[in-house]
Simulated scan of single mutants.
Amino acid sequence: MHTVGVQTTILANIPSPPQGVWSIGPIPIRAYALCIMVGILAGLWLTHRRYVRRGGNPDMVWDAAIVAIPAGIIGGRIYHVITDNEKYFCDTCNPVDALKITNGGLGIWGAVILGSLAVWVLFRYRKVPLGPFADAVAPGIILGQAIGRLGNWFNQEIYGRPTDLPWALDIFYRVDESGAFAPVTGRSTGEIIASVHPTFLYELLWNLLICGLLLWADRRFRLGHGRVFALYVAGYTLGRFWIELMRDDAATMIFDQRVNTWVSLFAFIAAVIIFFLLPKGRETPEEVNPHRDSEANDLDTAEPSEEVDPGPSRSSHT
């Protein structure tokens, strides 16, 4: 009897994608942008379902999206550029890169702040309470964040310190067509630069966990008046705090800690306080949509469409 030894190689580490940008003719297809778009659509779908169940006007969801999405993108980019200004305003930097959103770099806090401000203005103008909508949108926001984190995987960014854990993320050396180093837009040479903590994956899984927690808590305790949104902020920042402590990419430091670590800490404290200060219980459908009766009356009093006289009926015989 002969024994044949078989050598096997088990791929334990998580590989980065070989590239994050594809071209269809002159049109670049960026995985980062696609992940953001899918995240937005998933968040809108969940928000629409939840807001309508609360008694809200479904049209307000789409109106809010029209103002919140561009405001959120602008706010997210501004926050990123401010907190990572050394990437764009240095002796060897090109300030124009600060405008290249598709290359990656959106700060969630800037997106939430400016997006929320835009929606607040819209709802104030329409004389509709913001609290029920904020509670409806909270799980959708963090679901969208989870999906959007996949874009960081394609861009090889938002990673942690080097590690030899079995689930380490391999960062590849990427080059463009000229052979120059291009970590975002280039293609992998197969050379591994480092094996690091996949903090993008940690945050993705944490966000999905918090999304499930929000849906459960809202259904179990019938939360309202903005308490689901406050719980979202508290839950997200709790995870973001310890994930920031694991990251090793360049960042603005304050007292030897990353700026997002401090932002997460203070946002968590504020969210917990606000959660307990907000009223308990959930709004009635009439409170969610004060214009409910007038909208129904508008439908009832709408002029009927003209009907065509079908003329005398005729029967056919075989």
Results as ranks from 00 to 15, higher is better:
3 T>R: 13
3 T>G: 04
4 V>W: 13
5 G>L: 13
5 G>P: 10
5 G>M: 10
5 G>T: 14
11 L>R: 15
12 A>D: 14
17 P>K: 07
19 Q>M: 08
19 Q>K: 11
27 I>P: 02
27 I>N: 06
29 I>N: 02
38 V>P: 08
43 G>I: 09
47 T>F: 04
48 H>E: 11
51 Y>V: 00
55 G>E: 01
56 G>K: 05
57 N>W: 12
57 N>A: 11
57 N>F: 09
60 M>L: 13
61 V>N: 05
64 A>C: 07
67 V>L: 09
67 V>K: 03
68 A>F: 12
69 I>F: 15
74 I>A: 12
75 G>E: 09
79 Y>L: 07
91 D>N: 11
92 T>H: 14
97 D>A: 10
99 L>D: 11
104 G>W: 12
106 L>A: 06
111 A>N: 04
116 S>A: 14
121 V>M: 12
125 Y>C: 00
128 V>Q: 03
129 P>T: 02
133 F>Q: 01
133 F>L: 03
134 A>N: 01
137 V>E: 01
139 P>F: 10
143 L>T: 10
147 I>T: 06
149 R>M: 04
151 G>C: 09
153 W>M: 06
155 N>E: 09
160 G>D: 09
162 P>G: 04
164 D>A: 14
173 Y>Q: 13
178 S>G: 08
181 F>M: 04
186 G>K: 03
188 S>L: 05
188 S>G: 04
191 E>S: 07
192 I>P: 13
193 I>P: 00
193 I>T: 06
197 H>S: 05
204 L>W: 14
210 I>M: 12
217 A>L: 15
218 D>R: 07
219 R>Q: 13
221 F>A: 04
221 F>H: 15
230 A>T: 02
235 G>H: 02
239 G>D: 07
239 G>I: 08
243 I>D: 02
249 D>A: 05
249 D>P: 11
251 A>N: 12
255 F>C: 06
260 N>E: 03
261 T>M: 03
261 T>A: 02
264 S>K: 02
266 F>V: 13
267 A>W: 02
267 A>S: 09
280 K>V: 01
284 T>E: 08
286 E>P: 00
289 N>D: 03
291 H>M: 01
292 R>I: 11
295 E>F: 08
296 A>P: 03
304 P>Y: 13
310 P>Y: 14
313 S>I: 13
314 R>T: 14
317 H>E: 11
